[in-house]
Nucleic acid binder design. Sequence first.
DNA 1: TTCAATGCAAATATTTTGCAATTCG
DNA 2: CGAATTGCAAAATATTTGCATTGAA
Lengths: 145, 145
Amino acid sequence: MNEHKSEWMQTLRENGYRLTDAREAVVEVVAGSDRVLKPFEVFEIARVNYSKLGLVSVYRTLEKLEELGMIQRVHQPEGCQAFVATKEGHHHLLLCRVCGRYEYFEGENLELFFQEIGVEKQYQIEEHWMQVFGVCSRCQAEANT
Amino acid sequence: MNEHKSEWMQTLRENGYRLTDAREAVVEVVAGSDRVLKPFEVFEIARVNYSKLGLVSVYRTLEKLEELGMIQRVHQPEGCQAFVATKEGHHHLLLCRVCGRYEYFEGENLELFFQEIGVEKQYQIEEHWMQVFGVCSRCQAEANT
DNA sequence: TTCAATGCAAATATTTTGCAATTCG
DNA sequence: CGAATTGCAAAATATTTGCATTGAA
């Protein structure tokens, strides 16, 4: 998972941001997670390794990571303040309602479909969000225990 | 648009809720709107006709309308605390980024597609969200003025 | 050495809760 | 009448901002 970490730190530097301990701590947690994380969760986890970390720096770092397209916001029934690492290209999210684990999937002709909707409804389409919720295999297995 | 109003009031009554002036004011605004509305916007608009209305009653009424499936929450880049009237069956939302106007569209084989994703990824699919953003024809026209 | 970045505390913004007064049925 | 609902004020949450201090380059 953490192939992302050095890459993200690199990108931050390239965009004129300094590489601080606080940023590294946040990047490490988010880049290395296979689950959706809320700012406060990132704070709690990152703080284990870097106790000086402040919650505000978590918010500020997440903001930059989102701005640079490394992470994206996830919308869930329980709230919309969680993030996941972005994947190259345009992909869609599949989320486990129980544990928050996530995966990406591709929607072949969806782009075309949305363009057609735009023509039909006379909207100039700009973007689309798609998320699918369910229970991942591990959580299904656990439920049967 | 306000074919909904009496229908919603009816449904509230059928579910054991009382028909109060506060509820009527909120229902009238949300049922009659062709745009996405935030709780505070509902409050401001509804208050014009019913000045005694409190913001808390708006929240509480919206909660009930959502619970009974008459309205649904909309997720947007700027926030996720807006609501629209629900449409029968499962439809997807097309939203104008500029004015907040909304329309529904149908996704023919999408259900099947999501089931397939579930099999492939071994997820037990429960629900999906899809929203498309763009600029509606009226706002496009205005931009050229 | 310089200025971006930090962490704290305080300020905002949003939503929820407690409660006495009101009102629907 | 009695219970559900209201609106206010206060509390709880979540996020942002101001600012003196720290630290990366």
